[in-house]
Amino acid sequence: MTRDTPRSTRAARLLTGGPPLLFLLVFFVIPSLIMVLTSFRFPGEFGGLAPVTAPADQAAGEYGFTTEAYAFFFSDTLYARVFLKSFGVALATTLACLLMAYPLALLIARSEKRFRNLMVLLVILPFASNFLIRVYAWAIILGPQSALSRVANTLLALLGMEPATLLFSPFAVLVGMVYVHLPFMILPLYTNLEKHDPALLDAAQDLGARGWQRFWRVTWPLSLPGVFSGSALVFIPVLGMFAVPDILGGTRDILIGNLIKDQFLGTRDWPFGSVLSIMLTLAVLSVASLTAWFARAAGRTP
């Protein structure tokens, strides 16, 4: 690497990192700044925003900048409770996805090379159909007249328990969330597992490690980057999701995504919607940095 002058490194860095940086500065940072400003404004009487300067025709009326939306957020523990609940659902979804995705990703990574692409394709294919249609399909599967519900309720009856309704419940929301986000766990896991050198496992075997030990000592630690990025890709989008609780949820399934959507639509309170989103982004970033810290810590242990 002796030929690398600092200048050529800088140039390469600029060439690789520059275009995405520029794109995101324009199409993400500026719009986000607009939204941050929004959180310091008054909501417009009809939705949208109240003017910054005093309207000429109106003596009274609120205008200019304010922190009242923040004050409203912190005036009650209500919103913190919605956050907590949403994080709980996101965590449960992430764990369920991990549990389901890992064996499949491992199998794909260890299959013969010519079958791998096909198997990955089979994971993605269902997602080329329409999102809502897939969620509605779950409404059918979980509905009270479905085979699944009948089997479940027969089992419950045998155990002497009351029949349960699957649809319109937190369980249905979880199933829907897992279904919608599963590929986001499988793909990063697979791309990570696929690069593992089989020689490592053979070496472990030669050293007398049993199957389970080989997994815990070799495969699992090596796959952690994949686990973390998959978890991020599931955990975070679940927080913003509102369609799944809308369709499959019951009377208590309100998540932060529903709340934010509602501020922009039903309530037409953009400033408060922005505050909620900023709080969500901050919460997510702190979770992400915690995870990154854990990942680094885990990476250091042998």
Partner: peptide, 15 residues
């Protein structure tokens, strides 16, 4: 860049 890249994933769609 890392913050910029990952933030849109974290941002609720409606926002």
């Amino acid at each position: 860049l890392p913050a910029l890249v990952f933030a849109p994933v974290a941002m609720p769609e409606i926002l």
